[in-house]
């Protein structure tokens, strides 16, 4: 019984840790929005904006990756 509660707690915790991905999703969407607006206004900046956008997306995605690491740590019984 005790073991199964631990098990359940691990899975619930892993799921809860992934809530942080919501913020990263908002961040990725906002950076794409900004880049697209800029591209629509001035199509010549496409190349510049694309690389900066991918860089920004990589930064926001890192937050989701932290959450993913925490949830993996819980799932695979590291801590």
């Amino acid at each position: 019984m005790e073991g199964s509660i631990m098990e359940a707690g691990r899975y619930v915790g892993a799921g809860l840790a992934m809530l942080g991905a919501a913020g990263a999703g908002i961040g990725v969407g906002l950076s794409a929005l900004g880049a697209l607006t800029g591209m629509a206004r001035n199509p010549d900046t496409y190349g510049n904006l694309l690389s900066s956008m991918i860089l920004g997306i990589a930064f926001s995605e890192a937050i989701a990756i932290y959450c993913l690491v925490i949830s993996f740590l819980m799932l695979f019984k590291v801590v």
Partner: peptide, 16 residues
């Protein structure tokens, strides 16, 4: 910490 976990997290997630 953020340097270390950004790279590790991305690569580990990719492996999984």
């Amino acid at each position: 910490l953020s340097f270390a976990f950004r790279l590790f997290g991305n690569m580990f997630a990719g492996m999984v």
